[in-house]
Write a protein that binds this DNA or RNA. Structure first.
Length: 778
DNA sequence: TGCAACGTTCGG
DNA sequence: CCGAACGTTGCA
């Protein structure tokens, strides 16, 4: 077999062949060293060589989390050890060829380390073809006119000139980092269907167009109320949409605007412009930079993201859409291409392999080029690539050293996918759509006002149908679920900004950080596009303590990865269509999360909290969650069901919650009992619009022996129509209560409030801040 | 030699 | 289709 590995491979290879032909797998064959089975889709000459950890990337340097599925399986963590998989947090980002790999031609190992010139390095490094699996030194190939296509995603991986020239279509080869894809919300594995791999791009393109992944009506159906219960009316998404969308367009027409901020800075401000030019890497790779930036404008963001970003101070709005996308997707705008860093790391997650074939040679010399084609078969693929691109480029690239002296070239197909999402109609009739959602004559938009903002009349959500339609669970949305999202980076950024001349900028990182700290998220996103160093700096989690995706109608994998990358303390996913898998995945990777807002999401999604542990969570907002009733509250509050030895944790998963928002839920005293029992630190409780809440409920919360009696400082019972004056008596026993909101409680009278104030005045002075809104004075 | 874990198969 | 299982590889 054309395998460039150590001698013993021959046998196993033939064995593999046999196996492949004789499936199902025969029972253990004694005496043979059956090994790597060939992929069933194998259409080419060699068995694929297993890759191994790079041992350098952040993932490799991590220790096992001890909590993931695979860790729990490990013997060292008390598991049976059957799964034999690496910790999810340790999935190598840049799996390398094993040391034993040698060139199929000269039988020697990679020699790039012995060389200085970038080009030599490339010519003497081992490259494994993702199609025929041959491992060769590019220099050992005699193919003259064709060049190989380097797979950005994996070190030492390309489509060799032979295969490339023969027009074979490649399969995406991924390393270990991808192998658990099938176990994660973002599986990529399933995409590698052999049957689908074949076929030319010409065929695929229409294919894709026929099945747009983004259906115009989807976001409409899922449109949450325009007013959140706790805020002023927000501008309608469509108001800004046109403009914002345009920011993301990368059509030629729009390119100028698209590049907007950066270009402007560079041209308008001579100083800044000069400065930027000094930054190492940018100047030499101007084209690359541009291109990467363009490329970075990933199409899917144009799709679902409803641009109502509230990142940073969004008073100025305008570009929230851009912002939100960028925020979560900063790295893909990262300029790369610098020969000393970018490639490097190997798994440059660039768009890779399969897909179209219209790449063009730029120059004669580089023997290989980076593949720039966007896959045009499935959106999921685009997304996958974009994701990997993002992650790998910005994070890991910086960490590794492989070098590939390749040139980047423009890629026309890049623009392709975008069209899918630019259908201006997608959000076009939101307005009319919303109108159809009016209930009981109350405009949709008004349904979620807080009492102070609405007329409570007719606002009694007494039946489930009166509930604001929360988003349905996300449609079976391939693009959202097929992603490998890697753990957040830990590597410290450089202390100083490297400049082109080899020196570094005089201002230290911490000073820059202070400056960045004064910028809005929107501005940060712009800064992220300046250079890799800024990109990393601006991603510092201190700058992203709070991430707000409220009402973002489509949570994409890129967003998820962006979130993980920033490790926010506070995350607002209200009124989004996040799925259970996504949420679960997120929570498990946000160990420092303190504030989680999920209002208006579906119970299907929120139920992710049942299986995930977030011990640090202090604030949980699940108001208006569709389907969240007593039974679900029990699931939410009860200890994990996994009681295998070593997994036992009888404590409530939400035991540290201090602020709980339950507005608009059909919960009864049953839930309140659980809350009282399981949330000893509960200080603020929002039960507004809960129609089952009555005096007895208040009695429960304030009864002797309950922790809530002493811990509660704020309670919101507004628009709870079963609550009467009598409840006020119960509140007298609350030691710490500071605010009682009884606004729009039909059965609560002002007189009773005044009486309460009078009676309490002896010990704790209260006042009426508003009608039926009692607040402790001073 | 033993451990970690890759990549595939298989069962639900 | 998904995830558990496991044979075998790669390396210290």
């Amino acid at each position: 077999m054309a395998l460039s590995l150590s001698g013993d491979d021959e046998e196993y290879d033939s064995e593999s062949e046999q196996r492949a032909a004789n499936r199902p797998k025969p029972p253990k064959m004694a005496g043979t060293t059956s090994a790597v089975k060939l992929p069933s889709n194998r259409s080419s000459s060699g068995a694929r060589r297993r890759r191994t950890r790079c041992r350098k990337c952040e993932a490799c340097l991590r220790t096992e989390c001890g909590e993931c599925h695979f860790c729990k399986d490990m013997k060292k963590f008390g598991g049976p050890g059957r799964m034999k998989q690496s910790c999810i947090m340790r999935q190598c980002i840049a799996p390398v060829l094993p040391h034993t790999a040698v060139c199929v031609v000269c039988k020697e190992a990679g020699k790039e380390d012995t060389l200085e010139e970038e080009e030599d390095k490339f010519n003497f490094m081992l490259m494994e073809c993702s199609i025929c699996n041959e491992i060769v030194h590019p220099n050992c190939l005699k193919v003259s006119d064709a060049s190989g296509v380097v797979n950005d995603e994996l070190p030492n991986c390309w489509e060799c000139p032979k295969c490339n020239h023969a027009g074979k279509s490649g399969k995406q080869k991924r390393g270990p980092g991808f192998k658990y894809a099938s176990n994660l919300p973002g599986s990529l594995l399933r995409e590698q269907k052999p049957a689908k791999e074949e076929g030319d791009s010409a065929k695929r393109r229409p294919d894709r167009d026929e099945t747009p992944r983004f259906r115009p009506e989807d976001p409409l159906h899922r449109q949450p109320p325009l007013l959140s219960p706790c805020s002023l009316p927000r501008p309608r998404p469509e108001d800004k949409l046109r403009k914002k969308r345009k920011l993301f367009d990368d059509d030629d027409d729009d390119a100028e605007e698209d590049l907007g901020p950066r270009k402007k800075e560079r041209s308008d401000d001579p100083y800044f412009s000069k400065f930027l030019r000094q930054i190492k890497k940018e100047e030499d790779d101007e084209d690359v930079y541009e291109e990467e930036s363009e490329r970075g404008r990933e199409p899917h963001f144009r799709a679902g993201v409803e641009r109502r970003g509230r990142f940073g101070d969004l008073g100025e709005e305008g570009e929230e859409k851009d912002l939100k996308s960028e925020l979560l997707n900063p790295c893909i705008k990262t300029p790369v291409g610098d020969s000393d860093q970018s490639h490097c790391s190997s798994p440059q997650a660039g768009p890779s392999s399969e897909g179209g074939s219209e790449t063009q040679e730029k120059g004669p010399r580089p023997k290989a080029r980076r593949k720039r084609r966007l896959p045009n078969r499935e959106l999921s693929r685009e997304l996958s690539k974009a994701l990997n691109q993002e992650i790998q480029k910005t994070e890991d690239c910086l960490a590794n050293e492989n070098r590939q002296p390749l040139k980047v070239e423009p890629e026309s197909e890049n623009e392709e996918p975008k069209r899918l999402f630019r259908n201006g109609s997608d959000l076009g009739d939101q307005r009319s759509h919303l109108k159809t959602k009016e209930m009981n004559g109350t405009p949709w938009e008004l349904r979620h006002f807080y009492p102070s903002q609405i007329t409570p009349l007719g606002f009694n959500r007494s039946t489930p149908t009166n509930r604001p339609p929360p988003p349905h669970s996300p449609p079976k949305c391939v693009q959202m679920e097929r992603h490998v999202i890697r753990p957040p980076p830990i590597s410290p950024p450089p202390d100083r900004l490297p400049l082109k001349d080899g020196k570094t900028h005089t201002i230290q990182r911490e000073v820059w950080m202070k400056i960045f700290g004064n910028l809005s998220h929107q501005e940060l996103c712009v800064c992220m596009r300046v250079c890799k160093t800024w990109n990393r700096w601006c991603c510092d989690k201190r700058l992203w303590m709070k991430i707000d995706l409220n009402r973002c109608t489509s949570i994409t994998p890129l967003m998820l990865s962006g979130i993980i990358r920033r490790q926010p303390v506070s995350l607002d996913l209200s009124w989004t269509n996040i799925s259970k898998k996504q949420l679960s995945w997120l929570i498990n990777r946000l160990p420092g999360l303190r504030v989680l807002r999920l209002s208006g999401c579906s119970w299907a999604a929120v139920s992710a909290l049942c299986t995930s542990s977030c011990p640090l969570l202090r604030m949980l907002d699940v108001q208006w969650v569709e389907g969240l009733k007593d039974a679900q509250m029990r699931d939410l509050l009860s200890p994990p069901t996994d009681n295998r030895p070593g997994q036992l944790d009888n404590r409530c998963k939400l035991r540290n919650v201090e602020d709980l928002r339950l507005a608009g839920l059909d919960i009864t005293d049953t839930s309140l009992r659980l809350i009282s029992r399981h949330m000893p630190y509960l200080s603020s409780l929002d039960l507004s619009y809960c129609n089952h809440i009555n005096d007895q409920s208040v009695n429960l919360l304030t009864a002797a022996g309950t922790t809530t009696r002493d811990s509660l400082t704020e309670i919101n019972l507004s628009v709870c129509n079963r609550v009467t004056d009598h409840s006020l008596n119960f509140f007298k026993r609350c030691g710490s209560i500071c605010q009682i909101d009884l606004r729009f409680c039909k059965q609560v009278t002002r007189t009773a409030c005044e009486r309460f104030i009078a009676e309490m005045s002896v010990s704790v002075p209260f006042r009426l801040k508003e009608e039926k809104l009692l607040q402790k004075s001073s």
